[in-house]
Design a protein around this nucleic acid. Structure first.
Lengths: 101, 101
DNA sequence: TGAACATATGAATAATTGTTCATATGTTAT
DNA sequence: ATAACATATGAACAATTATTCATATGTTCA
């Protein structure tokens, strides 16, 4: 593992390290249709302003965790690849495991 | 996924989201013997003060990512379970994947 | 017991990060 | 072209987090 790997990994984990972003990723995991969900959908679902959602989506986009697709005046977001799901699975397993003690 | 899961997950990811802690976890992944590595070993290996290392180890301990075993006056740290390794693997795969584009 | 060492931790400061508000950009339909 | 809507973003403030220094605790050995 190189120094660069370490820095990039910590950046990715940092992006995951916020409850709002996890909620957004989780909402996208379910998805309302094949194309993903628009900013307003997500904002309503989570009870947030679209501004706040948009800021977080920008961060998620830069980390290549979500991808955007513009259709008309709406932008539909969806998970970029299935590493997000894997990450959630491993993390949940860790939480469950430590709760068993 | 419950609200509590989300909060706990973000806490775990937050702990991973720091290069120093990733370096420490990576150093422990290799391990100098079965019992792990002592604080001073880690500090020397990473070129840090033992105080800084100790603070980070405390955070890692509270997240159940490392475990401590006291032998004589030294405390040996090692990875708590293999979720750490899984987490690293998924994250590295994500980094490699996005670099391919 | 006292000296030397290993680790832990509290408190202060420095640095980073999240949220909000106001505003800008871009799209659709009249 | 303009009004209405969807999203994005800059800047300011609030909150969280990391690092450092000084000191405390606990262990070993003479």
């Amino acid at each position: 593992m190189t120094e660069r790997d370490i820095l990039e990994m910590s950046e990715v984990f940092k992006v995951f390290g916020d409850p709002t972003r996890i909620k957004i990723l989780n909402a996208l995991k379910e998805g309302c249709n094949n194309n993903g969900k628009c900013v307003q959908c997500i904002a309503e679902e989570l009870g947030m302003t679209h501004s706040a959602v948009s800021h977080q989506l920008k961060i998620l986009r830069h980390a290549y965790l979500v991808k955007a697709q513009k259709i008309g005046k709406e932008v539909y977001y969806s998970l970029d690849d299935d590493h997000v799901t894997s990450m959630f699975d491993v993390c949940l397993a860790h939480i469950r495991h430590k709760e068993e003690d």
